[in-house]
Design a protein around this nucleic acid. Sequence first.
DNA 1: ATACTTAGTGTTCATTTTACACTTAGTATA
DNA 2: TATACTAAGTGTAAAATGAACACTAAGTAT
Lengths: 221, 221
Amino acid sequence: MNTKYIGFESPGVTVDLVIFTVNEDQLKVMLVRRAESPFDGFWSLPGGFLKIGESLDAAAHRVLCEKSGVDDVYMEQLYTFGEPKRDPRSRVITVAYIALIPWQHLPQPESTKVTDLTWLPVDHLPKLAFDHKEIINYAVSRLRAKVSYSNIVYGLMPKQFRLSELQSMYECIINDKLDKRNFRKRMLATGLLKETGKKDHAGAHRPAMLYQFKSKEIVFF
Amino acid sequence: MNTKYIGFESPGVTVDLVIFTVNEDQLKVMLVRRAESPFDGFWSLPGGFLKIGESLDAAAHRVLCEKSGVDDVYMEQLYTFGEPKRDPRSRVITVAYIALIPWQHLPQPESTKVTDLTWLPVDHLPKLAFDHKEIINYAVSRLRAKVSYSNIVYGLMPKQFRLSELQSMYECIINDKLDKRNFRKRMLATGLLKETGKKDHAGAHRPAMLYQFKSKEIVFF
DNA sequence: ATACTTAGTGTTCATTTTACACTTAGTATA
DNA sequence: TATACTAAGTGTAAAATGAACACTAAGTAT
């Protein structure tokens, strides 16, 4: 903050969103197809330039709404990427955000026609535009770490759910199996869940109690 | 990344450094006195504008060297602050970094004359320029958290040290007392320390074995 | 009525964490 | 040179936590 202003030399500033969901037992990330050079036709993270007068968080929310049609989701700033050559056209630094959306909350596409938006499993990504794969990898490692010391998975669950669904969510993210009894004990011991009283009668088997979170607040253990 | 370039509307981009050291059993942060409006005369974080062609990390290192005269220290990106009004003059977003410097490695000021640089304890800060107090508070909470699940304190220790000094370092940062025997057991159990063979004969008491880190690598537990 | 499927539940053992007090090896001083 | 002083250095027992493990319950479908 001690240097003189040299406004016209300023880099461009964007926000890019790593929007996660879990579907078909896979952790997936939202990608949009670029329709211009550079990386024309490549998948990339949804993002956009920061507007003057707009906070970083506001810009991230704006992009989130534009692309997902959803607001009111868990979102946090991830990291700021600023290698000089990360955009081949000119200097652009990007502030990356993580967002979590329950699959059930997403407006489902009407048909299977090719669109410029997709959800791909994080462990099988094609070549992406810019440094977006690096950004996603960092986001995935942050998410995987955070799952184990917080209740951040809240952001990916529907309002009501079976404990087995919650367990499955954890297993998808950390990519490992958990012991059912220990998992239930631990979850109920947090005191963050409550029974809804309702039961889920799906399937030819004993119905499951539906649970929900007492609060949407994120807690660190 | 889907919007058009509007280069001349770009916000300014700075890096600001929260440089920590521990001295006199207190966690302290480096501050520089502003010599211009706004906040003329207030203490502020060392920082500067990002140069075109310079990566964020490089800019942070440049500022670090300018102000501390030290390189080769632990540094990590903290968070990017971008509220529209955080700089009253114009739109500036700042990428904040944390750096750790052992007190012993700092070039000591020759005299006690008033300078434009100081180290103040993080828990007793005066009013600071911009949103710098908020940035410091966030940095302190990050540091305090990270101390408990990594060996990040390496960054604050001199090359060789007594175990009691290491313990004291932990205690200063987390602001709590630790049990001596448990602390030693835990530290030695990590396998990251080695005896130097040398002993520290300071003081009228049994001399202490001097230890050092096997590697400067940061490890998460 | 029977088969099928997921829901739901406790205990034991191993490991980790915590609490806690005395002896040792020097330096300083009388 | 004997004594006092100070921080260094060490082990164990109890408590808490984490990990492994298998059967019964309650529905739906045939």
